[in-house]
Design a protein around this nucleic acid. Sequence first.
DNA 1: TCTGGGGTCCTGGCTCTA
DNA 2: TCTGTAGAGCCAGGACCC
Length: 496
Amino acid sequence: MRSAPTILHLDMDAFFAAAEQAAKPSLRGKPVVVGGLGPRGVVSTASYEARRFGVHSAMPMGQARRLAPNAAYLVPRFTVYRAISDQVMELLGRLSPLVEPLSLDEAFVDLEAGGSAHDTSSARAAGERLRRDILAVTGLTGSVGLAGSKMLAKIGSERAKPDGLVVIEPGTERELLGPLTVRTLPGVGPATGEHLRRSGMTTVAELAEAGEDELVRLLGKAHGASLYRMARGLDDRPVVSERDAKSVSVEDTFDVDLHDRARVRSEVERLADRCVARLRAAGRSGRTVVLKVRRYDFSTLTRSETLRGPTDDPAVVREAAGRLLEAVETTGGVRLLGVGVTGLADFTQEDLFAQAAARTPAPPPEPSAPVDDEPAGAGREGTPVAGAAVEADEAPAERRFPAGHDVRHAEFGAGWVQGSGLRRVTVRFEEPGSAPGRVRTFWVDDPELELSEPLPLVAAAGQSSCPASRPKSRVESGSDTEEGRSAGSGAGRLSP
DNA sequence: TCTGGGGTCCTGGCTCTA
DNA sequence: TCTGTAGAGCCAGGACCC
C-alpha cells in the first residue's frame, strides 16, 4: 500500500460502442449495441444511450433487442479496437515503463516507477494530461482512477465513469470501502456474492468484521485470505508489465445444436487447427490438450490429455482432441465446442529430438521417438486438414457484409454496412470526420461495392477527407432513422 | 429466441511414487 | 512385505474477469 496515489487505472468508456460512434457520425448520441448478432449472441458493449434502456454487457442479444428495438446493432471489429488500443497503450507507455494491460480497453500504470508522479497533485496532473491526450489521439474518452493500490485505483475509475477522474487518498480506504457491496471487491462474482449473502455479509465492512478465519472457512484458504485483506483495503499486488500467456484456446457456439457425431468430430478438428494456428502465431507450443463441450442443456464439461512433450503440430492436437471426444457422450445435442492447449512452452518435443540428434554424431535408432505424437494418416494420404475441408464445403459465395463493417463504393465513397439481407446490403455513406451521411441499398454482388479497411477515427494533421461528405447531386435521399435495421426494409437506391 | 469468447486461478479428487 | 503418509502431477469443474 503506497502513501501516495501513484497507481493509475484507465478504463475506456463503453469502448467498442464509443469507437463505433466515433467512426459513424450518424450513431453519435444514439443507442449502440456491439456484440454477436446470431441467434445466440450476447452483448459485448452497450453505449451509455443504450444502457438507459437497461441493456448491458453479457446480456443475450435477443433480450437487448426487446429492450432497445431501435438501437443500432453491430458486430465487433477487433482490428479497429486493437489499433485504437495500441494508440492508448503507447500513451500509457510514455507515463511509465510499468504498464499492465488487462484487456483492449483497460490498464494499470505505475506512475511512480515512471517518475511521472510522486504525490497527489502530480498524479492528478498526469491523469488529466493522459485523458486529454487520449481524446486528442483517438477521439474517445477514458476514465481514470488513482490510488495507492490496484484494487482502489480500479474502484476509482469505476466511480469516475464516464469521462472523469477520481483520486482515492491513501488513508481513506477503510472509510470508502466499508459501505460498499461485497461485489465491489475483485474476485467476488455472483456465486461468491450469494454465498456471502447467505452467511449474512453484504457489505465490505461486514467482511472485515467477520475475520480471516471465518472467510477462509467459507471460501477456502486462498480466496478467503485474499478477500479479508482486500476488505481491509490492503492490496500490495504490483503492476506487472509482462505476463506470459498460460493457455491458448478457441471455441464456437453453434446457432443450432449439433447432433451428428461426424459433424461434431469435424468441428473439433477444425477448432484444433485454429487453436494451433494461434499457438504458432504466438511462437509457442503446448503439452496439455483440452476439449470443452457444452451440451444442449448448457451443462459444460472439459476433458484433457497431457502429451509426453509440448507440440505445435496440428495433427497431434487434432488427434488428441479426437481421442478426448471419444469419451464424451453427445447425444441430445452439442451447443458449443472448444479446443485449447495449456502447459505452454517455447519449444516442441520435436525440437528436443532434433537437438539430441544434433548432439549425437551417429544417432541410434530412436527408441523414444514419439510414436503416439505422429499419428498415421493425419494430414497425409491426401487427406485435407479439417478446416480446409470445411471451408471447401461451405456454400460459395454470396459476399458477406457484416453489420458495421467499412465499405467503399466506386461512386459514393466510404461508408459502413447498416444492414444486409435478402441479397441486399444497406450502406450509410459517412466517415469519422464527416457529417451524418445518407443511406443507399445495393445488391450484394454490386461490383462497385467492396469491403474496405477501417478509417482512422482522428484524421492526421493536414489529412482531409471524405468523399462521402462531398455533396452529391445524384444521390437520392435515404432514411436517417433506420439504424441497424436490415437492408430488406432499407430505403435508398437499389442498384443496379 | 435466455445465457459469447478467451482467458486466469483455485479446489478437490485421484493416482503414483518415495 | 505391508501399511500409512506426504508430495507432485494430472484432471475436472467452478468461479471470476473483461
